[in-house]
Amino acid sequence: MTIAAPAVPTPRIREPNWFLDFCRQQPLGAVSFVIICCMMFAGIFSRLVAPYDPLDIDFASILGAPSWEHPCGTDAYGRDICSRLIFGSRTALVIGFTSSFIGSTLGAVLGVASAYFGGRIDNWIQRFMDILLAFPLIVLALVVVAALRKFVIGGVDVNLIFAIAIPILPRVARVVRAAALSVRVMPYVDAARAAGYSDTRIIFRHMAPNVVAPYLIMLTAFIAQAILAEASLSFLGLGVTEPTAAWGLMLSGNAADFYREAPWMILFPGAAISLAVFAFNLFGDSLRDYLDPRFRM
C-alpha cells in the first residue's frame, strides 16, 4: 500500500545570496548594518578619515562652535571634536561591542546550561549569579580591574573588557535561563534526550537557537551600557584615560563644566553613542527575525 503524499506547492528555497536576501527582507536591518560598517571603517582607518589629530591642542580655538573647519566644534583644549569622535569609535567598538558580546554569550551559555541541567547545578549557577548581581556594576568592575593587572594587546586593555563583561553576564544569564526553561519542556528536547544525544549537542543544537531572540536583544542593549560603563571607569582613572579619544570620556570628563557655553561638547558624543546603540539594536532585531525560519514564508 502506498500512502498518498499530500500535494502542497513547493516553497521557495532559501536564496544562495543571503546578504541580498537579508537586505530585501529587512531593509531597516540593512540600514543599520551600513551604519555599523561606517563606524567600523572610521575606527579602523581613523588616521585617514579624521581631519585632525585628536590629541592636537589648539589654544587659539578653545570651545569653538561648529564651523567649516571644525564641523563638530572644539573642546576645552581646542581639540577637534569630530576627529575625536572618529578615533573614539575605535574604543567604543572594541570595548563596547567586545565586552557586551563576551558577557552576553557566556551569560547565555550559562543560562541555557542552568535551565537544561536544573536541580543542584541550576541552584549553584543561579546563586553565583546572585552574588555577582549584588554588586553594583562599577564596584564589580573596579574589583576586577584592581585584581587583575593591566594586560594590553594591540593597544586594548583586555582586563577592561572583562571588567565590563563580568557584570553583564549574570543579567543575561537570568533572562536567557527563563526563556530556556520554557524551551526545556518542549517535546523536541525530550525527543533529543530520548535519542541519546550528548548534553552539549542538546544545549547548542536544540536549545540555544531557540533562545536567540532574548539573547540578541540583551546583547544589543548592553552595548550602550558597556560604552557608558567604560566612560565611568575612565572617569575613575581605571579605563581608557585622558587624553585618549573615547566617547564616554568626552561625555563625562570636563564637558559637564562647559555644557552651557559649548553644548556641542556633549551633543555630538551623545548623538554618536545613541546612533551606535540604535544601529546595534535595530541590527539585532532584524538578525533575530531573519534567523527565525518561522518568519520566512
Binding site: P187, Y188, A191, A192, P209, N210
Partner: peptide, 9 residues
Amino acid sequence: DPYSSLNPR
C-alpha cells in the same frame, strides 16, 4: 503534539 515536537530552527 506535532507542533512542538519538532525543533522549529
